[in-house]
């Protein structure tokens, strides 16, 4: 890369690193401004302890885990249900495209694994998952005894 930088210097391209570096300061200031008005932001986008960022929903007869897994394809995902623990694991490949040099790399390549203790007993035989636009939805049926039951009120 130093070679490339030198090579391009005459054309002004050598400044790209500096341009982006200068922007970091602007970005930091912007983020501070966001903080001031209470706008949330991802402070640790590649934080492995909480990757993938997820939400858990109760949909009556089933539980839904929604996880953000940008750049992960189906074949790189592994889902396991063991008793009441759901484990989402996989790999996300991030490679410098061939023939390119890297100026900035914030998106980490990673091998991840995150386990969720589910608040209900589940039926591991009946679950499914979909992946769309980098968002994974895992649906797991609750065990029959954990499903909501309709109680009929009889007039006395």
């Amino acid at each position: 890369m130093p070679f490339l930088t030198r090579w391009n210097n005459d054309f002004g391209w050598g400044n790209i690193d500096r341009t982006f570096t200068a922007l970091d300061e602007i970005r930091r200031r912007m983020e501070r401004a966001f903080d001031d008005v209470g706008v949330e932001r991802d402070t640790d986008p590649a934080g492995l302890s909480t990757w993938p960022p997820s939400s858990l929903y109760d949909a009556g007869s089933e539980l839904v885990l929604r996880a953000e897994v940008p750049g992960v394809s189906e074949k790189d995902l592994d889902l396991q249900v063991n008793q009441d623990v759901l484990t989402v694991s996989g790999t996300r490949p991030v490679e410098v495209p061939e023939g390119y040099s890297a100026h900035r790399r914030e998106r980490g390549a990673m091998r991840f694994s995150r386990s969720f203790t589910l608040p209900f007993r589940v039926n591991a035989e009946s679950c499914g998952a979909t992946l769309k636009n980098g968002v994974l939805d895992v649906r797991i049926a609750k065990a029959p005894e954990a499903r909501p039951r309709q109680i009929t009120v009889k007039a006395g």
Partner: peptide, 19 residues
């Protein structure tokens, strides 16, 4: 006032373009 995130980015360059 809903959340607004700053997404992580990679920046690459070759002779033809910045990616």
């Amino acid at each position: 006032r809903s959340a607004l995130f700053s997404p992580p980015v990679d920046i690459y360059e070759n002779d033809q373009e910045i990616l």
